[in-house]
Amino acid sequence: MCELRQGIQRRRQAQTASRLLVKYCGVDCQRAHRKQHKGDCKQRAAELKDEQLYGQGQERSEDDFCPICSLLIPLPMHEHSGFFACCAKKACHGCGLAAQRRGMLESCPFCRTPDPKDNAPVLAQLQTRTDAKDPVATMFLASQYYYGSYGLEKDVPRAIELYTEAAEGGSAEAHAALGKMYYEGEGVEQNQSKGIGHWELAAMQGNVTARCSLGHHEFDEGNYERALRHYLISAKMGCDDSLKTIKNMFAAGLATREQYAGALRGYQVAVEEMKSPQRDEEARAKANVAT
C-alpha cells in the first residue's frame, strides 16, 4: 500500500472511531452540538493513533532475518551482514564465513551465484529487480545513488525517487531513510512532520532505527514519557543506543528502576537470540584482524 493510501486509511480510521463516540439524532442535532464533543473526539482519535503506534512493530521486520540461518541479524545490520544483488538478500557474516569454510569463496552464500568482478553486473542486477518492483533491491539501489557508491554519481533526487518507490512497495527501511531525510532536510526541503510520518510507518513495521528516532524526537520535545515508550520497544529488540538512553533517563529520574531493569532484560534476551557459533567465530576473526 502506498504512503498516500496508508495516510488516508489512518485518517479514515481515526475519523470513524471519533464519530462512534457520539450519536446524533439527526443532521440538525449534529450541527448544533458537534462543537461540544469536538475536543473529546480529537483526543480519542489521538489515543487510537497511539494505540497503533505503540502497539504495532513490537518485533523486528522479516527483512531483518538472515535467510540462511533464520536468525535476526545483529544491529547495526550493515556491520553484521552483506547484501547480495543477485538475490536481493542480506546474509549475516556468520553464514558468509560458514560458506567460505565449505569452499564457496567467490559466490553468494544464499543462491550460489558467482561474485561479479566489477560494479556493472551488480548495478544491472539491481536495476532488473528494481524494474520488477522489488522493494529490497530498490531500497539498496537508492542508497547507492544517495551515497554515490558502486561507481554511481551521487544523485539525491534519484535516490529520493527510489526510496519512495521502495517505501510504496512496503520497505520499512526506505520509510526510515525518508524519515531521516525529511526530518533533517538532507537533500530535500526540511519537513519534520513528513519525516515523523515516515518514521511512524517504519516503526509500526518493526524498524528499530525509526523507532529509536521517534524516541529521540519526543525526548528533544520534552515528551519524556512518550520517548521512553519508544525506547523500551527498541531496546527490547536489541538496540544498544535505546538501552543506554533509558539508563541515562533512569539516572536523571525520568525512568523507573523497573523500567530500566525490564529494558535490560529484554535487550539481553534479544542479543542472546541473535548469537550463533558461526557469528561468534566471525567476530573473533574480525577482532584478530583489527589487532
Rank of each mutant, 00 (worst) to 15 (best):
R5N: 09
G7F: 12
I8Q: 14
Q9F: 15
Q13H: 15
R19M: 09
L21G: 00
L21R: 09
Y24K: 08
Q30H: 07
K38G: 00
Q43F: 13
Q43V: 11
E51N: 07
L53D: 13
G57T: 05
D63L: 01
C66Q: 01
C69H: 13
S70G: 00
L71G: 10
L75K: 04
P76G: 00
E79I: 06
H80V: 01
S81R: 03
G82K: 09
C86L: 06
L97C: 10
L97W: 07
R101C: 10
R102G: 04
C108W: 12
F110C: 02
F110D: 03
P114Q: 13
P114V: 11
D115K: 11
P116V: 04
D118L: 07
P121F: 09
L123F: 08
L126W: 05
L126T: 09
Q127E: 15
P135T: 11
Q144K: 10
Y147L: 14
L152K: 02
L152A: 04
E153P: 06
V156Q: 08
R158T: 12
A159I: 00
L162F: 02
L162I: 01
Y163D: 01
Y163A: 02
A177W: 00
G179I: 04
Y182K: 07
E184K: 10
G185T: 12
E189Q: 15
N191Q: 08
I196C: 08
G197I: 11
G197Q: 10
M204G: 07
M204V: 06
V208Q: 14
V208G: 11
T209M: 05
L214A: 02
H217Q: 04
E218I: 00
D220N: 06
E221T: 05
G222F: 03
N223V: 08
E225A: 07
S234W: 01
K236H: 04
D241N: 15
L243Q: 14
I246T: 03
M249F: 15
A251P: 08
A252C: 02
A255W: 01
Y260G: 00
L264C: 02
E272N: 05
E272M: 01
Q278A: 11
Q278R: 03
V289I: 12
V289G: 03
A290F: 13
